[in-house]
Design a protein around this nucleic acid. Structure first.
Lengths: 338, 338
DNA sequence: CTGAAAGCGCTTACAG
DNA sequence: CTGAAAGCGCTTACAG
């Protein structure tokens, strides 16, 4: 007693064709909107479909059209309170515009080295394109995708010009932040960063450097730490910096900023009186402090959205800009006051 | 000059059949391992495939076999430092076992109300099953999936017996935690929770209640808050509880715990001397405090893994347990000392 | 504007 | 053990 003519198998295009006394081709045209078709027939078909809930089989469409309406989003393996929200939020953004365009997203997590999962997805033709959410200095995935000529976009900067990139202007943002801090009368600013394999980290450091150059100031390399891979190293750096008499510490991200703030608290060093602090990336972690922290703020969801939009444009054969740079905000707070 | 016989189109099963002088059926059998086939032919085919890198077209396989090798994972829209890592970690777990079984995961984010995205995925037959990562008191998705007879598993408890569930034993865990606290000599324990629409929150409260009953203690409803939906409400509750002279506050999750700890600090109330605190869910947020917090600890990745394993079993027609309850740990720390 | 036919790239009874 | 054929459910030139 259901709509399905007493037949419980899922409806096909032929079922609706038969019911309506037209051919399957005509039904297909009505649905796709492609090819000439009479307005009356089209409406009749569309009405029937609407009413009886016909949904085309994705695999059949995919096979016939050589397109999947799937895109892959490649996530790194991360587990910090800074990284997880970043990638998750970015994924939301991607998903939002994918959904809006009738695309689904296939998520794959990788360690940055094993290209097997990625290859399988491509070779089996399960996706029409890919989004790389993190790029490395020498990125295996990028090489593979370029060679396979798969449409893909890299979230984050990449040295090669022929790679389509969507990113926040990390270089410009850090440069401006440091310049602003100089303008506030701060004489020297230390930099604490970690893994320079990641492009985003290189960019931030570059911005810091450029600000020094622009300000015609001499950058003392003793104030620069770019390979702090754990808490102990950050703590040691903070101790050394305190002794050195530097006025301000610029943190590559909130993970490092978090350690810095805690360490200073344990040392009894007051922010900003005895040490100023700023971070290159605002995340909710910063909300937890008694003292508010000066930082750069990026719109991560928008980053995801734009990446997806650019990828879809590529897939649909439109020409897209090689680089899309998103804006940033500089949030000045207590931690750099005075 | 590539391996592809000078032809740049992607290889099909017929190409390898022709090269090897066998039929497409035989190639198919060699790959799938199904149907009788001579060991020699099989090896010859497999070697060729290995060497020349043939990958079957997923859409074609999907169409012929009516299965997609995709599963969907439904994520709620969340943005707190507690929720995002939870769902992200769970997703990792799912992805890990999906990958290992040659399944891909399609991620869809929903607000819990709009069933459209879910429906599309099902109706177009893009997935073989689904994982619901959050369940609600009256879950629309559950209803839809049951009606459609799609294999699915709910992460978290669900009242209906005919819904396959994978969950931590939230009830038992909270019950035991509260019982342990009683055993330490604490006389009364307040409960701070939020949205009771979510099953997980109901469970935790239920465990708390059961511990009271088991201990034959009278539960004073003035000590119970179950609808704190923002910071201000939590703060007010903390103030009232401090006045009431209660000894210990049990927090439904770390989001609430975070607010409680901060509020107590601002009030100048020392933990654990002047107020004890415990949380029903350990997340990295708790690592940030100067005082360590007693809490329940769950293995979220494992939750994801098991959910996926159960779903795959269902898809493959095995019988699976209606409920899979994962273990928990009780971590006693400073915050409940003395 | 519409239909019949071939094709997308696999799988799987059915013969042999 | 292996092959020819039909079928999965669409799309799309090609005729008319």
């Amino acid at each position: 007693m259901n709509n399905n003519s007493g037949n419980d198998k899922t409806m096909t295009i032929h079922d609706v064709a038969r019911e309506l006394g037209v051919s399957a081709s005509t039904v297909s045209r009505a649905i796709s909107g492609k090819g000439r078709i009479g307005a009356a027939t089209r409406d009749r078909i569309l009405d029937y479909i609407e009413e009886h809930g016909f949904y085309p089989n994705a695999a059949a469409q995919s096979l016939a059209q050589s397109k999947t309406n799937n895109i892959a989003i490649i996530l790194p393996e991360v587990n910090t309170l800074v990284d997880m929200p970043f990638f998750h939020t970015c994924m939301y953004g991607v998903e939002e515009v994918a959904q809006a365009n009738d695309y689904d997203i296939i998520v794959v997590t990788t360690n940055g080295n094993d290209t097997k999962p990625l290859e399988r997805l491509i070779q089996n033709r399960k996706v029409d394109g890919m989004i790389l959410t993190r790029t490395y200095e020498n990125d295996k995935y990028v090489k593979f995708l370029k060679q396979k000529q798969i449409p893909f976009v890299a979230v984050g900067k990449f040295p090669d010009d022929d790679v389509v990139q969507v990113d926040h202007d990390n270089v410009g943002a850090c440069k401006e932040l440091v310049t602003v801090l100089f303008a506030k009368g701060i004489q020297n600013i230390a930099y604490l960063g970690s893994n320079m394999d990641q492009m985003v980290n290189r960019c931030r450091y570059q911005g810091y450097e450029e600000a020094y150059r622009k300000g015609k100031r001499k950058l003392n390399q003793d104030l620069v730490y770019t390979d702090l891979s754990n808490k102990a190293m950050v703590e040691k750096a903070v101790e050394e910096l305190k002794k050195s008499g530097v006025e301000c510490i610029l943190c590559q991200d909130d993970y490092i900023c978090d350690e810095v703030v805690r360490k200073l608290a344990r040392m009894g060093v007051r922010i900003p009186d005895q040490m100023k602090v700023a971070s290159c990336h605002y995340s909710r972690i910063l909300e937890n402090y008694p003292v508010t922290i000066t930082s750069l703020k990026f719109n991560i969801t928008e980053l995801g959205r734009r990446s997806c939009q650019v990828l879809l444009d590529m897939i649909h054969g439109k020409t897209v800009p090689d680089k899309t740079l998103l804006d940033y905000e500089i949030i000045l707070k207590e931690s750099t006051k005075g």
